[in-house]
Simulated assay, not measured.
Amino acid sequence: MKGMDVLNHSTLYMKIKHYLLVLVALLPLLHACRKDETEQLSLPAIAANNAIAATGFANGFFIANEGWYGHGSGDLHFYDYSADTLRLNIYAAANPGKTLGGATSTLQFATTFRNKMYIVVKAGGPLVVTDANTMVETARLTTMPDNDGHAFLGLDSTKGLLTTSGGVYPIALPGLTAGAKLPGISSYSGDMIKAGNYIFVHAQTEGIVAYNASSLTVARSFGTANLCFALGKDGAVYAANTDSLIRINSTTLARSAVKLPFSTPSPWGAWRHSAITSSTTDSSIFIVRNNGFMGGTTLYRYVIGNTASLSTPFITLPSGQYFYGAGTAYDKSNNTLVVTTVNGPFTGSVNTVLRYNASTGALINSNVFNGWYFPAMPVFH
Rank of each mutant, 00 (worst) to 15 (best):
V6T: 12
N8S: 04
H9T: 12
S10Y: 10
T11G: 13
L27P: 06
L27T: 07
H31I: 15
A32V: 10
K35L: 15
E39W: 13
L41G: 13
L41R: 10
L43E: 10
L43V: 14
L43Y: 14
A48D: 06
A48C: 04
I52V: 14
G56V: 08
N59G: 01
A64R: 08
N65A: 07
E66N: 07
E66Q: 09
W68A: 14
H71S: 11
S73F: 09
S73K: 13
L76K: 01
H77N: 15
Y79F: 07
D80H: 07
A83D: 13
A83S: 12
D84N: 15
L86T: 14
L88K: 05
K98N: 04
L100F: 03
G101K: 12
T104S: 13
T112A: 07
F113W: 02
F113S: 09
K116C: 15
M117L: 10
M117D: 05
K122T: 09
K122Y: 09
L127V: 02
D131Y: 04
A132D: 14
N133F: 05
T134M: 06
T138W: 05
R140C: 03
T142R: 08
F152K: 01
L162S: 01
L162D: 12
T163V: 06
T163E: 06
A172C: 06
L173G: 03
P174L: 08
L176W: 05
G179A: 13
L182M: 10
P183I: 02
S186A: 12
D191P: 11
M192H: 01
M192Q: 08
N197Q: 11
Y198V: 01
I199V: 09
V201Y: 08
Q204W: 12
Q204M: 12
Q204T: 07
T205K: 12
S221Q: 08
A225E: 07
C228H: 07
L231W: 00
G235Q: 08
A236P: 06
A240N: 05
L245H: 03
I246L: 07
N249D: 12
S250N: 06
T252P: 04
A254S: 15
A257D: 12
P265N: 04
P265I: 00
P267S: 00
W271Q: 14
H273L: 13
I276A: 02
T277M: 08
T277A: 04
T281C: 09
D282M: 03
S283E: 11
V288E: 13
R289G: 10
T297Q: 03
T297C: 10
Y302G: 05
T307L: 01
L310R: 02
L310D: 05
I315R: 06
T316W: 04
S319K: 13
A326S: 11
A329P: 00
Y330P: 01
Y330V: 01
D331K: 02
S333W: 06
S333K: 06
N334A: 04
N334G: 02
V339K: 00
T340G: 03
T341G: 03
T341Q: 00
T341L: 00
N343T: 12
S349H: 14
V350P: 13
V350E: 15
R355Q: 15
Y356F: 12
S359H: 08
G361F: 03
A362W: 02
N365P: 04
S366W: 07
F369P: 02
Y373N: 09
A376W: 00
A376V: 02
P378G: 05
V379G: 04
F380Y: 10
F380V: 14
